[in-house]
Design a protein around this nucleic acid. Structure first.
Lengths: 165, 165
DNA sequence: TATTGTTATACTCTATAACTATA
DNA sequence: TATAGTTATAGAGTATAACAATA
């Protein structure tokens, strides 16, 4: 019957551009950011699926490694995670023996967070995969391109000055 | 008594960098993308809050404007939204009189989507705010920086070639 | 049989209020 | 009275399975 020029059969991604006119969307920073983030995170999650680790969990392990004993609230704040949502996140890591809560001398309310030996071993393995993941995308834009990109992204996420509209 | 005025108690963002060592995270493309996307989308949502419009809704209105009569599945695919999740999204726009489903001649299963006059008027107003939003972030990185950024982001979200690892 | 739109459902992420035990 | 961690909960966003009508 109606045999339209149906080129791509990919249901979710990519097929987009060919089918419909997206208007001003591709020229918007936010739209391009979202698309790129989906592509990058998809690859990340695929590589981490075997170890059942998500981006937030990986980030927490990194912060614990670099800041042993930091208080729970400070860790969550450093990663932009609400302390209330951070509780079950850390529960999961602790239940798997990858992280640990310990008491803090001088303040019995607070808890200092630590990465366990098992967690450190896990993180070392993850870092290998993250390096491969990172290299994949760095290869697309080159070393100079990656530095340019990180610089631009950092400027976008910098706290807005009060002088701005 | 406790006069907690409208001063923003910045619990989540920004305070991060000073407190903790984030290790390799700031050097990762994915982490920088996520941070930038949060900053940009936060501004977008703040500006659109008064009109109760989200990014996905704005995107749909744009696609309907530029592709009147496109089938529902094609619109959702163009935006990377699963057709099953697209149903309630469009329901919302239709209930507000901003978009419309019409029958398609030749295929009584399909529905062609259209933006209504009210939707077009709404979109025109939104576009003014989106322009201001976009200008805010473009100002941070300059015109050349924005073009560089869009180019780099596009390269990252391009469909991976089979040649890649 | 396959496709279009739909319903139901579940899981993750994120956000708010309120509790506890300390300070 | 305020703070650190916690619980409960609700709302988005996103995922899969299955159905009815139609092709």
């Amino acid at each position: 019957m109606t045999q339209t020029d149906n080129v791509i059969e990919d249901e979710t991604a990519a097929a987009a551009d060919a089918v419909a006119d997206l208007g001003p969307l591709p020229g918007l920073i936010g739209y391009a950011l979202r698309r790129a983030q989906i592509a990058v995170f998809q690859d990340f999650h695929l590589r981490m699926a075997a170890d059942d680790i998500r981006t937030a969990q990986y980030s927490v392990l990194q912060v614990l490694k670099h800041n042993p004993g930091l208080r729970q609230s400070q860790v969550s704040a450093a990663l932009g995670i609400k302390r209330t949502n951070f509780v079950p996140l850390l529960d999961g890591l602790e239940a798997r023996g990858l992280a640990e809560r310990r008491g803090v001398k001088g303040d019995r309310r607070a808890k200092g967070l630590f990465i366990t030996p098992d967690g450190a071993a896990m993180l070392a393995r993850l870092d290998v995969m993250v390096a491969a993941h990172e290299a994949r995308f760095a290869a697309r834009i080159g070393v100079a391109g990656k530095q340019q990109l990180l610089s631009l992204l950092h400027q976008l996420s910098e706290r807005a000055s009060d002088a701005e509209a």
